[in-house]
Amino acid sequence: MKLSMSQYPSAIAQASQAVNEIDHQIMEVRQHIARLEGNADMVVAFETALKNDNQRRARRFEVLQINPEYQRAYDALNRLSTEKANAMARLEHLRNEFSVAKLEAQMQIAQQLVGLESRELVGL
């Protein structure tokens, strides 16, 4: 759907706002993931049976993998990343369409001016 010249600024602003909202959601999910990872670190920190860093990392991984909330958060992060990429593509598409529309308008004005000058030279 091609927009009129006056509609592009508003559409671009809305598309930009959509990208910003997705960014905000991504940051919220990342904070949630960080909290879940912090909780896993606390669980691992108090397990005295773990003797070295490799065991602690493996146990941390295990704690996170059995947490369904952690997997849902990562799924949400992946979904939001895809949504953001699509929203960025939409925003860029609108910007490009607006640039083309401006160039077409400039071309039309230039052709009209050339036509007027030609008529003046001919005496019409």
Rank of each mutant, 00 (worst) to 15 (best):
E21L: 12
R56V: 01
R35N: 11
Y70W: 08
I12R: 01
Q55L: 03
D41P: 03
A45E: 10
S16M: 07
E83P: 03
H24V: 05
R79T: 10
A76K: 12
A58M: 09
T82E: 15
S6W: 00
N54Q: 12
L3G: 03
V63N: 00
L77G: 02
Q17M: 10
M42T: 13
S16E: 09
P68M: 06
D23L: 06
I22F: 06
T48S: 15
V29S: 04
A73H: 01
A76Q: 14
V43W: 01
V63C: 00
N39Q: 03
V44C: 01
A15T: 00
S81M: 10
E28Y: 07
S16A: 09
F61E: 13
S6E: 14
T82R: 11
Q7P: 07
P9Y: 01
A34T: 06
A76T: 13
L77W: 01
A73I: 02
I66S: 12
A73F: 03
R72C: 06
L36Y: 05
V44F: 00
R60F: 02
R35T: 07
A76V: 06
A11Q: 03
E62P: 02
S6D: 13
F46Q: 12
A40D: 02
P68Y: 06
R30N: 09
T82K: 15
E69K: 10
Q31M: 11
V29E: 01
L50T: 02
Q55A: 13
A34D: 15
L80V: 00
A76N: 09
Q25A: 10
